[in-house]
Design a protein around this nucleic acid. Structure first.
Lengths: 197, 197, 197, 197
DNA sequence: TATGAATGAGGCTTCATTCAT
DNA sequence: GATGAATGAAGCCTCATTCAT
């Protein structure tokens, strides 16, 4: 994990600098000159490791993308379980979502902003949540009248925004947010169950 | 409403073109050359009506800003009413919100994206909703344990996203979305009332 | 002299405005938009009276040029006279020079600055003075060892500068400057004569 | 003195080209495209070394400014000496002045033309000469009736013009001009002394 | 006699990218 | 593995000038 060679170290520095700048100023507004300055290198060095500005962006997203996929896969496995305590299950899922996105606030911001890419990533997350929810709808856990795609979009939008607004600023923790959101959505989405509050 | 002079017509065309492009590609990525091309004018003409790219943006936002303020004011008046049918009241509020933002999907997208400005506008909307909700909290209508600011941010985030995802594409109407969202949030936010479904 | 028609009046206003601006900011830095603004007209109107920016400049210079030629001619006539009082004659010449240039401080400034033109006008003035002086050299009035062309250039340079520095600012009058300059140059240029101080 | 690195060499070429063009065509009329063309570089290269057109101008002036200050300081030291041979002293001063300005004919022209800056630089030179002269006036060397500031302005104007007219063209040397000018001004400014011609 | 509207050409400046060392 | 130097392409903006009315 720790870079061995000087080259790997330089590349890491560049990725790090780019991540911070992209998050702070957006992709377009971030200049290569700024990235290399923040990384303590020259502009030419940048092109030793990346083919273009777009390239560094892609490489940056990839890792993040993988984490999302992992979350997604984890999600799939949980689907089959019919939880005793639905409420805590859902709350947990929210906390998980906040945790993944909150661990990479910069990447979250970047990924969900960059036009083309964001749609890809967002789509993956939304898809995973929607499928999950549809499944639970078949089990009678999620209300019939809920449009699971709309709900999934809503959940992602809320999570994304609250990460930026409260997690990034340190005003609230993953747990607090997860609980708040669960509370807001739960009884709207789930059927009245004995496990409700 | 219809511009009388040629100049006014040209300015309108430029604003129109800019709005579409800003919404589609973002402020930074939109080139003045594209705006004027879409408006059927030359680049020099642009500067007959706007001092800079930032200027056209500001002028564009102003109108929208006013509509938001109007909505805000309308909202304040409704606060005092203790509705018999809370559910339909809230649903209505959501439909209203979708309608205002949905009427200006481009502007919504632009305003809520452009760094500095977005914070201003978003803040106004969120503030209005949060205050409204806090009021209702005092009346015992909204649950104690809800953080109204978090909830308001959530509502705006959801609305914004669904407008872009479903209203803009024509896949759903304001009414459909308003009802869906009300359904999702309602029982999470409101106390169990006889007016619930 | 007073313009009869509206057109003449407009043209006069434009010339007036241009003169002031050219003098204050130079030819290049003065924009047509500024000229017409100062004249209370539109840019299109400008082209009713002048073919181009260069054109208004030329027309402006012409009048001035004529005055210089007139001074020149007057100078020639005086040459033949062998004055009794050389000192007062020279002083007078200086006062005259200051008067002509001082009457048109703007034009002086403009004419002597605008690259191409200035050389023409300056040349005329210098030539006239140099010839005059050479003549007087033959009469033994001006010292043999004086290079009359150098002296003439010097005289014009001094006059030009002092007009700008002291006449334009109102700090000194033509008379004062004429006398000062005469005093400075006289005994350097003229042979010791009984009319010296 | 000779630039070591390629970059320094390029910067030097740009300064050189700019100097010539500014002198020939004035600041405003000189385009950056012309400067870089004359320096054999591209327009982008210009911005490797200078922040703007104004910037290259400032850097150019600085050196010159320093030389003027040095001359000024040298001048101050000489003030105290009551020279035996005033004439040769003054002649020398003129030769010195011609030499400094003549060594940088372009800069002289530029510095004394560019509005804001020129006033600064000209003022410095004029001030130095005027003070010098006032001092000598107290010693009875310079005539009472001479306005030393007017005289100083005159001297600078003459020097400036003759440098451009005769030194730049190679028609006359510093020595020749210095002597001519000394001759013209000397007896006008100085009291009749045994050291006069 | 004048104006409202528009434009072509060109200026300054920025930036991602390349290449020789 | 890195840098100093340079560039091409493109962006924003200005300004003298034109033309229909």
């Amino acid at each position: 994990m720790m870079p061995r060679t000087k080259g790997e170290e330089s590349k890491r520095k560049l990725l790090q600098a780019a991540e911070e700048l992209f998050a702070k100023k957006g992709f377009q507004s971030t200049k290569i000159s700024e990235i290399v300055a923040n990384a303590g290198l020259t502009q030419a060095a940048f092109y030793l490791y990346f083919k273009s500005k777009e390239d560094i962006f892609q490489q940056m997203i990839q890792d993040f993308d993988q984490q999302i996929i992992d979350l997604s896969d984890a999600g799939k496995k949980v689907v089959e379980l019919v939880p005793n305590d639905i409420k805590s299950y859902v709350t947990n899922m929210f906390i998980q979502l906040f945790t993944v996105l909150g661990k990479n606030p910069n990447l979250t911001r970047i990924a969900l902003q960059h036009a083309t890419e964001s749609d890809q990533i967002r789509k993956k997350i939304v898809e995973q949540i929607a499928n999950n929810m549809s499944n639970n709808q078949r089990f009678g856990i999620v209300k019939e009248e809920i449009d699971t795609w709309v709900a999934a979009e809503a959940i992602v939008a809320v999570t994304e925004r609250l990460v930026n607004r409260y997690l990034l600023t340190g005003e609230k923790t993953e747990k607090e947010l997860g609980e708040q959101v669960a509370r807001m959505f739960l009884s709207g989405i789930l059927n009245h169950s004995k496990s409700g509050d």
